[in-house]
Amino acid sequence: MPPHLLSDYLFVLVFLLVGLVFAIAPVLLAAIITPRGVGLKRLTTYESGMAPIGQAWIQFGVSYYLFALIFLAFDVDVLYLFPVLVAYGSFPWRDLVGIALFVGILSLAIVYAWCKGVFEW
């Protein structure tokens, strides 16, 4: 790895560290100066004032999970377009045909999901 690249990564790390300090400092300050009341119901899970009914960690139906599957298809494929944009324009017509094929096949994912009725629920 070239040295300038290494220091570039180091700079991102510095920003992350400053972000960490900036995030933790007010929480620590609050933890020191705030009151520490302990009451009977203080640590109950909030459920609009009622006594909570059961746990939240249960199985429940997320009816839009199919959207997540389409997302996977798209997100992985859109990544491939980023290198393309840097090289685009270096061929007469070949890159346009390539992109048209790629985006065309990608858009079939929406057509398929639409026909399957994923978007109606």
Partner: peptide
């Protein structure tokens, strides 16, 4: 005010 408020973690969390 935000800094002065007590920090809570619900018992089940």
């Amino acid at each position: 005010k935000l800094i002065g408020k007590q920090l809570f973690r619900p018992a089940g969390a």
